[in-house]
Design a protein around this nucleic acid. Sequence first.
RNA 1: GGAGAGAUGGCAGAGCGGCUAAAUGCGUCGGAUUGUAAAUCCGAUCCUUCGGGUACGGUGGUUCGAAUCCACCUCUCUCCA
Length: 423
Amino acid sequence: MSTEQPLSHAQSLFLKEAFARGYLHQCTDVEGLNKAFAAGPVTAYIGYDCTADSLHVGHLMNIMMLRLFQRTGNRPITLMGGGTTKIGDPSDKNEARPLLTDEIIAANMAGIRTIFDRFLRYDDSPTGAIMANNADWLEGLNYIDFLREVGRHFSVNAMTKMDFVRRRLENEQNLSFLEFNYMIIQGYDFLELSRRHGAALQMGGSDQWGNIVQGIELGRRIDGTELFGLTVPLLATASGQKMGKSAGGAVWLNADKLSDFDFYQFWRNTEDADVGRFLKLFTELPIEECDALGQAEGAAINEGKKVLALEAMRLCRGEAAAEAAAGAAATTFGGGGVSADLPRVQAPAGAIEAGMGVQDAFVAAGLAASKGEVKRLIKGGGARINGDKVEDEDLQITAADVDADTGAVKLSSGKKKHVLLVA
RNA sequence: GGAGAGAUGGCAGAGCGGCUAAAUGCGUCGGAUUGUAAAUCCGAUCCUUCGGGUACGGUGGUUCGAAUCCACCUCUCUCCA
């Protein structure tokens, strides 16, 4: 796509900026979309599954894009897949996954919403974000009416040519009718959102391209409306790793799923080659500044990583958490001191006073999954208590190990994972 | 509907009566190096009350002894119709 052409209207700011920051992958019709922006605020949506009670870094790029979309004078809709989650997206999966219950879906949705509140402004103004839930229209659908209105526009011939369908068919793996309907339902969401809220654009991960296009087609055929789609690129690290692992687990955006310290560390440990790109994607610093920081050579690039970590923290966890995590990192890695802002885990009541085995302590702190793992860690020289290497696998942790200031014992697995086990 | 092949640790994939808690690779976790980076190198990699206990799709059986042999069941794949 070209950014050379003069974009005389402020609304096109979004596409220009999104492109420059690296959010754009594919677009169904750049010219048409530019015109739409020129005509006034555009309403766009991104759909989110409710399969977990938090979103993770993999979702962050498109949340940032929604935020940019709003800041550049448009109205974003976050669509919760309360209805579609009951079906489960079959694309890219080889087997059907177990269906979630209503209770779990509702709980997941509540967890996910807390994240959006940090990034978007929800209100009734022309650019105020809207929270939608496709359960609102999917659950009340009348089967016959739906088939007559929507079903007739879908060609099974075409649907069987889709990658995931063909794969399932060729491998003779069961593809239930339920799953087969997912793309119809998702396409229908777009139609419904365009009717209810005037949504003209759907954005999403590049894996959603097919679903998005289906929705656009549907809108054109049934309502004769012109709809647009655009996707964000798949995110990987420079060395080719899929992004989003930290301290042994997914990098959740919710603080109750991943501590502020670990979240900060995730960004702080970004690969050199990714610094500039990630700054543009995950912070709101001016592009020139991102580029400058990302181009630093050698150890100087660490400054960029600190900025990235701090800024990403600000957006995802808030100012106070960002400062605290940065401080905790500085004391932990700089001075070797113990920061009170390291992740805290409560030890079983009275356990430390009574004397707690190291192995149990590490497991309790979540630094190891089993005692055998702790033994291996000790054998490998990676276990530390208050900074001292553990040599004896039967060592007892007692009240004497509890630091007066933090009221906890600092346990470390390797050089980067630290937990304060609170007595 | 007919004929074959297969199901092994987080994954891929050897093993085909005892030496097999099960080769090798990937992944993961430590260590070294370094800049809390990447790359590289080294080590570890079921649980345990440290006696043992679980484990090679499921259930029985043969055997002193089975992931390995037999029967049935479940699922998957390939070829033919």
